[in-house]
Amino acid sequence: MRRVGLASAVPRSPMRWLGSVLAYGYLGLVYAFIFLPVVALMLFSFQDGLVPVPPFHGPTLRWYAELFADERMMAALRNSVWVGLTSSAIATGLGFLAAYGLARYRPPAASVIRGVLIAPIAVSYLVIGLGLSIVANQLGVGRSLTLVVIGHVVINLPLAFAVVLSQMSPAQERLEKAARDLGASEVRVLALVTVPVLLPGLLAAFALSFTLSWDEFVIAFLLTRFDVTLPVEIWSSIRTGLDPETNAVGTLVFLLSVGLLAITLAVVSRLSRRRV
């Protein structure tokens, strides 16, 4: 295998050398572009001053202290965790049942079921939020976090369903058949064979759903009024201008998401390795 290697090759001609410099330089520029806002966000969360702009003074943990003392932010954080956990649990549960039903029983018109369940992916969150908002108005239901949970299940269900469905395999089906032949009831098969074997897929679906719900703004914005989720609270603090406390909360949200991602990847790959 020939590698015109940036990493390995000793430049053989001036042209090639120039090419390598250009390539490295370009990658460096793009990565600087990609990381610039994140670095600015994190750095100025430690700003010892009232505005998160250069020159940098500090570091100080003052804004993190203010953040944790900020009752509105903390309430929004709790709301977001609650909405995320509830909507992800419902989406993963419903998605699992549907995927299981489709993969194992192959009902007639399965493609219709699949089409309907995947459909919300094609519609912008803004329009989904608008639709729910119109229906809630019609029914005279006030805006609330419960409505946000409902909306987040709508956007997460297609993904949870698709993730679980992609993890269904004939090998698992044979295991289930074996359990059934040995006299296990349907419920026992589901609880003792299907779910444990599918655990990595279920966890992945749950984590993906949680991340999306945790980050979702427009639906939450349209469907809440006083009790809001974290992105909505951050949104209202942005409207008052640049503020180091917003940097602090943004940094924390980023670290939490990356942490969650790392844990999920570790757990899923561990579980998959000892899987059938």
Partner: peptide, 9 residues
């Protein structure tokens, strides 16, 4: 990696 910052943030 920066995908994982919240969209609003």
């Amino acid at each position: 990696l920066p995908f994982w910052t919240s969209y609003v943030v």
